[in-house]
Design a protein around this nucleic acid. Structure first.
Length: 497
RNA sequence: GUCCCCAUCGUCUAGCCUGGCCUAGGACACCGGCCUUUCACGCCGGCGACAGGGGUUCAAAUCCCCUUGGGGACGCCA
């Protein structure tokens, strides 16, 4: 069976709830989700919470919230790995009975000592399998003494034994039996280990394709061994290259901070799909070279065989004010804000304005048309959703701040003390407050006074918006409304030195 | 140290399997210019890479080997 034979796949995302949902995990989830959607398959969410000491409920919530925010909906779950522990234990005992596993009585201390010694000798430590060769008498003695033991998998030791698995990204992978140690599948306290639990859960969930990070490659031969020993068919694997930081180190919250967590992008005003689109391109590309994809387009274009084999770098430079995350991610977000369907953008803007106290329910009722025109006008220059509250305040409230640089640059001409109130008067007299009429006022005024139009245009922009940048002035004034504009311009004299 | 994987502009990548169409293409970032009342957008242009060395071949980014560099895995973590 190869990947192209798979019609409908059952895939899963199986994070351990020991921290935040981070970029790497989210990308893994995204690839799984994409493949499930593409094949009309099933995407299962499984929480691998068997490490009781490190697993937390907050972390589970964070993962759920993150996936939901990204729009990566799952079809089954969340299943808790801890719920299936008895099945994992039972599998370990089946392996023991069938001779595929054995009891190992070596203590942690003994093994640690051997490991240290191997390290000192600069040789590889692979458990020597001494308990596999225990005599019947020794085994009986341990049984009578109730010596604590772990269960180890008995890796085939024939000289030419190899474990083979099919990887949709890396191709056919082989590992010699002699390079795999007899790994522990059940702890001395009777709890199963990840390597076993994970494989058993995948089998029970009928997972047909495992899409996971390349750091799972080394585990794969071991898990294939478990499958085969239990008489199960292993899934196909697709190991995705890792995403590293610009020093080629693993991404972690510890060393990179919030910028690697999904929740940070929500906080910073990202459009969730823009982040997905960016993540999709970290290790995958479309044959046509397209980069902006709608959900449907990405689902259609996505293809396991075009996943890269080399690691990619998340180009984050600490301390960069403008590029607080990978510049390409910012570019994607700005592109989405600028070009996405307005009705899809509006709910995000509403949430942002509500969060900053700028929302008015009239924006969905009597001021709906005005609101939509305004958003459509100002979004062209915005990078994140935060901009709607931080830079859009002058459209929604009279309480906005003035950029001192803009004031000193555009308000320095003393003549403005008379120009602006006069202009305000002329604007007040307009019976139709449209961009065209407003422009006529400005043009004729500049001609009459023999001053450059730029002078009064820039001064007015600063007066009504507090900044030196923004949309075309006349459209802007039209949207701000006659009363508001006239009032602001009359007060403007205080800004002129 | 052992085993495994990877290697094209600063970053994301196309091309590699099936050698010639590659003077190595695109995107982001950066730098110029145009447009313009500003800033963006848009358009035009610039900068910028096949890690090194050997082979094979008429021909190598593409196939093979070595070196170097990078990453991963080596837990009674997941």
């Amino acid at each position: 069976m190869t990947i192209s034979d798979i019609k409908q796949t059952r895939v899963r995302f199986a994070p351990s709830p020991t921290g935040y949902l981070h970029l790497g995990g989210a990308r893994t989830a995204l690839y799984n989700w994409l493949w499930a959607k593409k094949t009309g398959g099933v995407f299962i969410l499984r929480i691998e919470d068997t490490d009781a000491e490190r697993s937390t409920q907050e972390s589970v919530q964070e993962i759920l919230d993150g996936l939901q925010w990204l729009g990566l909906d799952w079809d089954e779950g969340p299943n808790l790995q801890s719920a299936g522990l008895s099945k994992h234990v039972e599998a370990a005992h089946r392996l023991l009975e069938s001779g595929h596993a054995y009891k190992c009585y070596c203590t942690k201390e003994e093994l640690d000592a051997q490991r240290k010694e191997a390290e000192a000798n600069k040789t590889a430590f692979i458990y020597d399998g001494r308990c596999r060769r225990l005599s019947a008498d020794d085994q009986q003695r341990h049984f009578d003494n109730k010596t604590p033991y772990v269960i180890r998998f008995a890796v085939p030791r024939e000289a030419d034994s190899v474990v083979v698995f099919e990887d949709a990204v890396f191709g056919r992978m082989e590992k010699r039996g002699k390079d795999i140690e007899d790994f522990v599948i059940l702890r001395s306290d009777g709890r199963p280990l990840y390597i076993l639990s994970n494989a058993i859960d995948d089998a029970n969930d009928c997972i047909t394709l495992v899409i996971r990070g390349a750091d799972g490659i080394a585990n794969t031969p071991k898990q294939v061994l478990i499958y085969k020993a239990l008489g199960l068919t292993p899934p196909i694997f697709a190991h995705m290259p890792l995403t590293l930081d610009n020093k080629k180190a693993k991404l972690s919250k510890r060393s990179h901070g919030e910028v690697v967590t999904i929740s940070y992008y929500k906080k910073k005003g990202f459009i969730p799909w823009a982040l997905c689109n960016f993540m999709a391109l970290l290790g995958w590309s479309s044959p046509e070279g397209a980069e902006i994809f709608s959900r449907g387009e990405l689902i259609q274009a996505f293809d396991l065989t075009r996943i890269n084999r080399s690691n990619s770098i998340f180009n984050y430079v600490p301390g960069d004010q403008k590029n607080w995350t990978d510049p390409k991610a910012i570019h994607f977000n700005a592109t989405y804000i600028r070009t996405m369907a307005l009705n899809e953008l509006l709910p995000y803007v509403k949430a942002e304005l509500q969060g900053s106290g700028l929302w008015d329910d009239a924006y969905e009722n009597e001021k709906k048309e005005w609101f939509e025109k305004t958003i459509d006008l100002i979004r062209a220059r915005f990078i994140t959703l935060k901009d709607f509250s931080e830079r859009g305040g002058c459209y929604f409230s009279d309480d906005f701040s003035f950029d001192q640089k803009a004031v000193s640059k555009n308000m320095k001409d003393p003549g403005l003390k008379t120009y602006l109130p006069e202009l305000a008067g002329r604007l007040a007299g307009l019976s139709e407050f449209s961009a065209e009429r407003i422009e006529e006022v400005f043009r004729s005024y500049s001609e009459a006074k023999e001053i450059k139009a730029g002078l009064i245009i820039n001064a007015t922009r600063t007066t009504v918006s507090g900044t030196s940048v923004g949309p075309g002035l006349f459209e802007m004034l039209e949207l701000m409304g006659q009363n508001r504009v006239v009032a602001r311009m009359k007060e403007a004299v205080s800004l002129v030195p």
